[in-house]
Every structure is written in C-alpha cells, then in structure tokens.
C-alpha cells in the first residue's frame, strides 16, 4: 500500500499572500489543522499548522493583534517542510510522522503538491488493513514462532474453500516464542474450520468455544 492509495488528493491550500485571519477561517471552516502554502505553479513553498499560529500569535494583552491578523501567511509559515512522495509505503510515512512528531505529511512530486495525509488517514488505513470494514468473521490463532506456520494455517483455511480478506502476523505480547495470526475470513459459518483446527491441536484464541473460556 502506497501513499497515493490513501492520500487526500483534493488538498485545501493557500497562496502566500493570504492574510493570517483568512487562513484561520479557512482551516476552521474545513476542520483541518494544517494548511500547505503553494505558489502559482502549485509548488509547495511552506505550511502552517494551528499550533504554529498559536505560537506566533501575540498575547491578547498586547494590542498589535490586528497587525498580526493581516500579515501574509508567508511571514509565519514554516518553509523546511517535511514531505513524502506518492510511491512511499504507508508504514514509511507513519514512521516519518512519529520520528518528527508531526501529524500531517504533504505528498509531492518534484515540489509539486499532489496530496496530503493526516493521522486520521493512517487510522482509517489501520481499520482497512485489519479487514474490519468487510463482511467477515475473525479468527485468531497462536502458533510457535517457527517457519511455515502461517502457510500451514492458511492452507487449512484454503482447504475449507474460504476466502481470506485480511491477515495479520505479529509477535505475542507475552513471549517471543509465539506468534499471533489474525485472519478476517469471508464466512459466517466458522464451525467446520474451527473443528479442523482443534483436531490439529492449534491454539485458537478467538472465537472462544462454548465451554466458555472467559
């Protein structure tokens, strides 16, 4: 999954001459916290965030507020913008945002603004990756941390002619001897599959069976 799959392509942006008060209005109206600044060629030349504005805003006890509000955004914008490219992987972008403690990334090709992603877009992506947005049943299996376990379990699923909508693999939180496999499977009836897994002595964590291991 690359950024061009998940980024917003219709970016709300401002030109450098826009006065600060207008930029604030624009951000409030669209409920966004970051505003890329682009020149007449759509080149990204800076960005302002609601936090940056708060930082440079004069105290209400001073009376130069009006002067500030009429400043062009070019005077307050940040110019060393951290950006990403459309073909970057989603996880790279998430990593960049964590590293730099930022909550949005403009996406550009040759300085031309092509899109933007925010933390919210990454959360939507998380939901999508877990497959929870499609009609599915959830299966969670704990397996030894050894080669071939994912293949084993998925071939059992395949033997039952069931389609896997998504699969996640991660290390157990308790021990590094184990891995957790989470599948979202396109079926309402999981019983035949569960019986096979049980017969083959897999550790099924979810669904819990009717003996009520609560």
């Amino acid at each position: 999954m690359n950024l061009h799959h998940i980024m917003k392509k219709e970016v709300i942006s401002a030109d450098p001459t826009m006065p600060v008060y207008k930029a604030i209005e624009l951000m409030d109206k669209n409920r966004i916290r970051h505003l890329p600044i682009i020149d007449e060629n759509s080149y990204l030349i800076g960005i302002i965030s609601d936090r940056d504005l708060r930082d440079v805003k004069p105290s209400i006890f001073e009376n130069n507020n009006e002067k500030f509000h009429n400043l062009p955004v070019s005077k307050v914008m940040i110019t060393d913008v951290i950006t990403a490219m459309p073909d970057d992987f989603v996880e790279e972008a998430a990593h960049t945002m964590i590293e730099n403690k930022i909550s949005c990334l403009p996406v550009e090709t040759d300085v031309k603004l092509e899109g933007i992603i925010s933390e919210t877009d990454l959360l939507h992506t998380l939901v999508r990756l877990t497959g929870a947005n499609l009609p599915t049943s959830r299966l969670e299996v704990e397996v030894p941390n050894e080669t071939g376990k994912l293949a084993e379990v998925s071939s059992i699923i395949s033997d039952h002619q069931l389609n896997i909508q998504s699969a996640l693999v991660y290390q157990s939180f308790e021990t590094n001897e184990k891995k957790i496999l989470v599948f979202r499977i396109q079926s309402l009836n999981m019983r035949p599959l569960l019986n096979t897994l049980k017969k083959k002595r897999y550790e099924v964590i979810w669904p819990v069976d009717l003996e009520m291991k609560v």
């Binding site: 929870a132 009609p135 599915t136 049943s137 309402l188």
Partner: peptide, 9 residues
Amino acid sequence: SGRFLFPGT
C-alpha cells in the same frame, strides 16, 4: 459486537 462475530460491522 463485530469484534467477535460476522460480519464485523
């Protein structure tokens, strides 16, 4: 809850 049961929504 969809966390536990089909269809997940």
